[in-house]
Design a protein around this nucleic acid. Sequence first.
DNA 1: CACGTCATGTCAGTAGCTGTCATCACTACA
DNA 2: TGTAGTGATGACAGCTACTGACATGACGTG
Lengths: 178, 178
Amino acid sequence: MIRAAVELFAERGFEQTTAGDIAERAGVTERTFFRHFADKREVLFDGSKTMERTAYDAILAAPADLSPLDAALAGMVAGASLLEGRRDHAVRRSGIIAANPSLQERELLKLAAMADTAAEALRTRGVAEPTASLAAHSAVTVFQVGFARWLSTEVSVEEPPDVATCLAQAAAALRALT
Amino acid sequence: MIRAAVELFAERGFEQTTAGDIAERAGVTERTFFRHFADKREVLFDGSKTMERTAYDAILAAPADLSPLDAALAGMVAGASLLEGRRDHAVRRSGIIAANPSLQERELLKLAAMADTAAEALRTRGVAEPTASLAAHSAVTVFQVGFARWLSTEVSVEEPPDVATCLAQAAAALRALT
DNA sequence: CACGTCATGTCAGTAGCTGTCATCACTACA
DNA sequence: TGTAGTGATGACAGCTACTGACATGACGTG
């Protein structure tokens, strides 16, 4: 169903695709579609929970002497690494989301959830508020900026971009702010 | 209509209130409601455009020797100042939004729009990417954290909290991250 | 072979939202 | 004063996202 949805969204656009269309191409009923996905948008955000947990675990597993921001960033790198081998898919998905405000909303909600989870992990590490929230949000911002850069770099210049490298660059730019 | 909507959302909750209910209490038709608001959620985000523009103008008007982050923060303070005298309303609105994920999505979209606008203002000031985006997003994060703190401080302790003060505290905590 | 349970199909219904046309107030201008 | 244009609203039909309820069939377990 995910594959069917991505295909259709890419062909006709998100709004022009009905839930029935996706179900039909996937060979199931519309009702069945809504039993697997809470709503039509959710079909594009299947792996978000996994990424969230991965980041959470990585933050807890980070060396104890890391600063809150560095620990949160380690979580982001771990989460982003999950997509390392699937750049083409990520690019197409990103294009679909960029073309539709309601999908952007959903993406922002997922990122906010990741920030909340990261803050929770930092608190478990003993970081107090509002430092935990600020570090988590900052790390997610770095994730956004670095990830976008990773997606936008041309592959034609045969220099295979690395997610972790892009995030590190964004992190460096963030530190330069103060 | 905005007043009618806020009342009903507070009484029965967002999902339990239909667009027809709001329209009826406001003395208009459901169709008329949707002519004024793009969707049911939008009724809670009426002033967001104004705040966005205020922040944009303030960033452009900020002293030229301010750092990107400080200029962006000046914009946030200017935007937040619009709500200075309406804390009670902001608190009630915040409670409604916190109780509904789809409203949180919309709020995140508005904040992202503010971040984009702030980044645009910074670029106009001559700030390059990705510094502009990072500074803008960081400033919005400070806005979120500081604003939440402003809303959560008890009024009973007769110490009238100041929006700008709350934002300044959050900004200080952000700087302490690095 | 009987039984539970789990995924799916079917059907009816609600609500968010949109297009279209008619109506009505208000304004401008002859 | 009359008339034409403009903008807001009401009325109505229609589509689609999503949900609840019930029936059916596959499958593993005893």
